[in-house]
């Protein structure tokens, strides 16, 4: 094995061999710990029995069938997607405009603006949800998915803003200057140069926001009543105990999230490679 730097071709002494065994043994244990619950979740979603615990009977797709037939779950899933897409779009849009305004125009008190926009990161979701809940009560506004969208934009805006801001560079600014020099109006510069160049960053911000929104529980819990998001619905089903259908929806959510991550990474890296 070619090792960069500190050489290893020396004949291994027993001590070093023992050290290696301990090291990789430790790694193995930690990985087992990390994967244990996920494996249990996935395995027992195929349980042919009423309780998703050992011994394992099956496999069967029965619980997935029940899941897709469960109208409440499916509605919650649709709601989650809607909330996720909407709040991510708003967060990314607002974050992009703000980052663009700050990076290109350098208004005075830029650091104050930056501070205000990043501030929500420091506050626990529980408190953000509580705040919105109190305000909604005061204004007599009932709980709804719309409130959840608002809350999710609050938590995702700082991240979208930070991600896009980190992607802005003097090199891009020069591209925009060149476009203006060649006669493009502000709007066209934005549409034809800025956004395409920033696309990987924008997609990353969108994907990150969606992932966080899709999985968010506390704010959704506090701000919804009848129409709920998926995590809230899963929560309700957990209250009734261990159930393989819950395993099924959990496995599904996991696979969807990982799939989404893989797609995002592939797209972002493919786009980034086009950079000159």
């Amino acid at each position: 094995m070619r090792r960069v730097g500190l050489a290893s071709a020396v004949p291994r002494s027993p001590m070093r061999w023992l050290g290696s065994v301990l090291a990789y043994g430790y790694l193995g244990l930690v990985y087992a710990f990390i994967f244990l619950p996920v494996v249990a979740l996935m395995l027992f979603s195929f349980q042919d029995g009423l309780v998703p615990v050992p011994p394992f009977h099956g496999p069967t797709l029965r619980w997935y069938a029940e899941l897709f037939a469960d109208e409440r779950m499916m509605a919650a899933l649709r709601n989650s997607v809607w909330v996720g897409l909407t709040s991510s779009a708003i967060a990314t849009g607002l974050g992009f405009l703000a980052a663009y305004g700050l990076a290109r125009y350098r208004p005075p008190a830029a650091s104050v603006i930056r501070g205000v926009l990043i501030a929500p990161i420091a506050v626990s979701y529980l408190v953000i949800g509580l705040g919105l809940s109190i305000v909604a009560n005061q204004l007599g506004v009932g709980r709804s998915l719309t409130l959840v969208v608002i809350g999710h934009v609050v938590i995702n805006l700082p991240l979208a803003f930070a991600v896009v801001l980190s992607q802005m560079s003097p090199a891009q600014e020069r591209l925009e200057k060149a476009a203006r020099d060649l006669g493009a109006s502000e709007v066209r510069v934005l549409a034809l140069v800025t956004v395409p160049v920033l696309l990987p960053g924008l997609l990353a911000a969108f994907a990150l926001s969606f992932t966080l929104s899709w999985d968010e529980f506390v704010i959704a819990f506090l701000l919804t009543r009848f129409d709920v998001t998926l995590p809230v619905e899963i929560w309700s089903s957990i209250r009734t105990g261990l159930d393989p259908e819950t395993n099924a929806v959990g496995t599904l959510v996991f696979l969807l999230s990982v799939g989404l991550l893989a797609i995002t990474l592939a797209v972002v890296s493919r786009l980034s490679r086009r950079r000159v």
Partner: peptide
């Protein structure tokens, strides 16, 4: 141009103020 900087950041600021700062004050 400076005004434009504020204008672009405006919507994000407005959202944060209305839906974060204000609720925090309420809390």
């Amino acid at each position: 141009s400076t005004g434009r900087g504020w204008a672009l950041a405006g919507p994000a600021l407005a959202w944060t103020t209305a839906f974060f700062l204000a609720p925090m004050v309420f809390v």
